[in-house]
């Protein structure tokens, strides 16, 4: 972050808009973040806050009605927003591997799993038999039973979590410089989720790649990620190391989000905590703080865009109340 680390990916002032029948939707506003070499960075935030859009913007895969409206995406020094489609495609195959949010969408329903895994190794000079052996080994690492037999099966013959694991196996086989994973563990039971986290950490260390990991599961983020980026309604509201953000949340949205986690409700309750209010209409963004309409701490000063304040080394929050950790603990807001 502010330390002189080498960044694999740097995003600055990124804006994305979607054209819809009801006007233009400003899905990402002035998004900025860094992913250091060999770092695992998590993104958390509201459903619909633009996490998948951010990924698609990085990969050059925005929907037809979407466009990048300013900003830079620097990958190893190259600005991806200016890359021609052909180089972009090459980059996606070799340097950036992605596990998409919808595993069914990533797998071709009419081609056997083994054939698909062979196809993604098209650049390798190995013979088919050896490619299949690699596929089997990778399927075993993600704990698919009967891995050999699985090569002959079709995606619909696997459970939701098995499809997710097959998608993870395929992405890992590419040994990318950057692995992007969009909620890759939603269909995994706790045991497998933990095993998958360990596997990702292992391979990350082995390959030396960086990881961008999106999840709503705060426990998984806490366990896997070195750093966290918190997004709300298309903006980055807080970012820092995992322990900085989890232990000293400085943006009210982050604090509310952490409080809503059912994992933190020790006593059993049928009525779970929520954040009252609604996200603003992304076609008409409020000029000031994006969280103001739901924020219990808002003041008249919040009507102007709040600055991104560095509250600790590498820990930033976009809120007028953001304070350095020491100050903060002395004058904790109610």
């Amino acid at each position: 972050m502010s330390l002189p680390t080498v960044n694999l990916l740097t995003i600055r002032d990124l804006n994305v808009r979607f054209a819809t029948e009801r006007g233009e939707l400003h899905a990402l506003r002035d998004v900025g973040l860094d992913i250091g070499k060999e770092r695992i960075v998590g993104i958390v935030g509201e459903s619909g806050c633009g996490k998948s859009t951010l990924i698609n913007a990085i990969l050059g895969l925005l929907a037809n009605n979407g466009r990048i409206d300013g900003g830079r995406i620097l990958f190893n020094g190259r600005d991806l927003t200016r890359l021609d489609p052909k180089s972009m495609q090459a980059l996606r195959g070799i340097e950036i591997a992605t596990v998409f949010q919808d595993p069914m969408g990533a797998l071709n329903p009419v081609i056997s799993v083994g054939r698909q895994m062979r196809n993604i190794q098209y650049r390798s000079s190995l013979r088919n038999k050896e490619k299949d052996a690699r596929s089997v080994a990778m399927l075993q690492r993600v704990r698919i039973p009967d891995a050999k037999q699985a090569l002959h099966r079709f995606p619909h013959e696997f459970s939701g979590g098995m499809k997710q694991r097959i998608a993870i196996a395929m992405a890992l086989m590419m040994e990318p410089a950057l692995l992007i994973a969009d909620e890759p563990t939603t269909a995994l039971d706790a045991t497998l989720e933990v095993a998958t986290i360990d596997l990702l950490k292992d391979l990350q260390a082995g390959i030396g790649c960086s990881v961008l990991f999106i999840s709503h599961h705060l426990g998984v983020i806490a366990e896997l990620c070195d750093e966290v980026v918190v997004m709300y309604a298309g903006e980055v509201v807080e970012r820092g190391s995992t322990s900085q953000v989890f232990n000293h949340p400085n943006h009210p949205y982050t604090a509310r989000l952490l409080e809503c986690d059912p994992a933190r409700q020790a006593k059993r309750t049928r009525l779970l905590p929520t954040i009252p209010g609604e996200i603003p209409d992304l076609r008409h963004r409020p000029p000031g703080c994006i969280f103001a309409s739901r924020c219990a701490d808002h003041r008249s000063a919040c009507q102007a865009p709040p600055p991104e304040i560095e509250v600790d080394n590498g820990h930033f929050a976009r809120c007028i109340h953001a304070r350095h950790h020491d100050e903060n603990s002395r004058s904790r807001r109610p």
Partner: peptide, 17 residues
């Protein structure tokens, strides 16, 4: 079947409530 997978914890709470 997984009614709240992919929802943030606040909206997950809303759906379950």
């Amino acid at each position: 079947d997984e009614p709240t997978a992919g929802l943030d914890v606040s909206i997950q709470g809303e759906v379950l409530n």
